[in-house]
C-alpha cells in the first residue's frame, strides 16, 4: 500500500522541484502542476503517476533525512557546547533533580554485578594511591584499643586451621634460613650452662646417684651375707643333728 505521507512528500517535492527549476517555463510547469493537481483532486490521475510520485517522495525523504542528520551533526555540537557553557549544569541538576530518589531507583547490585572489577582494579595504580596516603596520620587518629576491644579474637582464632597452616610450612626451608652460627654467637653458652647446673644442682644429683648405686651394692652384700649366715647355721645344725629353735 502506498504511504499517503510519501505521496504528500512527493507532491511537496514536486512543488519544490518546480520552484527549483526556475529555468523551465513557468507557465508550462504551472499548467502541468495545476493539471496534475486537478487530476489528483478529481481522481483522474493515473496509477503510474501516483507510483512515480511515491518513489520520488521516498527518495526525497531519504535525502532530506540524510541532510538533516548531517545538519544536526555539524550544528548541534557547537550549539550544545555553547549552551552548556552558558548554563551552570551543576546548579541546574541540583535544583531540579532529586538525586536521592534517583539513587533509590538504582539497582546497585546489578550495576556491580555487571562491572568488571578485576579490570578496574588492574587499571588502578595502587602504589601511587598508597604514596599519597599518610598512614601515620591515619594510625594516629585510630583508637586501636577500641577496635581491638570490639574484635572477638577467640572466634577468629577458632576459625583458623592451624594444622593446615603448619602443614604448609616447610621446616627445612625455615631452618635453612636460620643463621645458627650467628644465633649461637649471640648466646652466652657458658652462663646458660652455669645457670642450668645451678638450677638442677648437678653435684647434689651426682652425689645422690652415686650414693644410691653404692647403697644398692652394700644392701646386696648385706643380704647375701645374711643368707650365707643362715645357710651355714642350717648346715651346722644338720651336721650336729640339732633342731633349730622356731623363729
Amino acid at each position: 500500500m502506498t504511504h499517503v505521507a510519501d505521496i504528500a512528500i512527493g507532491a511537496g517535492a514536486a512543488v519544490v522541484g518546480f520552484a527549483a527549476v526556475l529555468a523551465k517555463p513557468v507557465l508550462s510547469s504551472a499548467a502541468a502542476i495545476v493539471n496534475g493537481g486537478i487530476a489528483v483532486a478529481s481522481g483522474r490521475l493515473g496509477a503510474d503517476a501516483v507510483l512515480a510520485l511515491a518513489e520520488r517522495g521516498e527518495l526525497v525523504r531519504a535525502r532530506t533525512e540524510r541532510l538533516a542528520i548531517e545538519l544536526v551533526g555539524r550544528v548541534a555540537p557547537p550549539l550544545v557546547d555553547a549552551v552548556v557553557t552558558a548554563m551552570d549544569l551543576t546548579q541546574l541538576v541540583a535544583r531540579h533533580i532529586d538525586l536521592d530518589r534517583l539513587a533509590a531507583l538504582l539497582d546497585v547490585d546489578a550495576v556491580v554485578a555487571r562491572a568488571d572489577l578485576d579490570a578496574v582494579v588492574t587499571r588502578v595504580d595502587i602504589a601511587a594511591i598508597l604514596d599519597r596516603v599518610d598512614l601515620d596520620t591515619i594510625v594516629d587518629r585510630l583508637d586501636l584499643d577500641a577496635v581491638v576491644a570490639r574484635v572477638d579474637l577467640d572466634a577468629i582464632a577458632a576459625r583458623i586451621d592451624i594444622e593446615a597452616i603448619v602443614k604448609r610450612v616447610d621446616p627445612d626451608a625455615v631452618i635453612a634460613r636460620v643463621d645458627v652460627d650467628a644465633t649461637l654467637a649471640r648466646l652466652d653458652l657458658a652462663a646458660i650452662a652455669r645457670q642450668v647446673v645451678d638450677d638442677i644442682e648437678l653435684p647434689e644429683l651426682l652425689r645422690q646417684s652415686t650414693g644410691a648405686v653404692s647403697s644398692e651394692a652394700v644392701r646386696e652384700i648385706r643380704d647375701e651375707s645374711m643368707l650365707a649366715d643362715e645357710a651355714v647355721a642350717r648346715f651346722v645344725d644338720r651336721v650336729l643333728r640339732r633342731r633349730r629353735a622356731a623363729p
Binding site: I221, M226, L227, A228, D229, E230, A233
Partner: peptide, 15 residues
Amino acid sequence: VPEPQGVAGLVTRVL
C-alpha cells in the same frame, strides 16, 4: 632374705 635383725652369723663376721 630374713629380717635384718638378730645375731650375725659366721659369714658376716668373717667378712
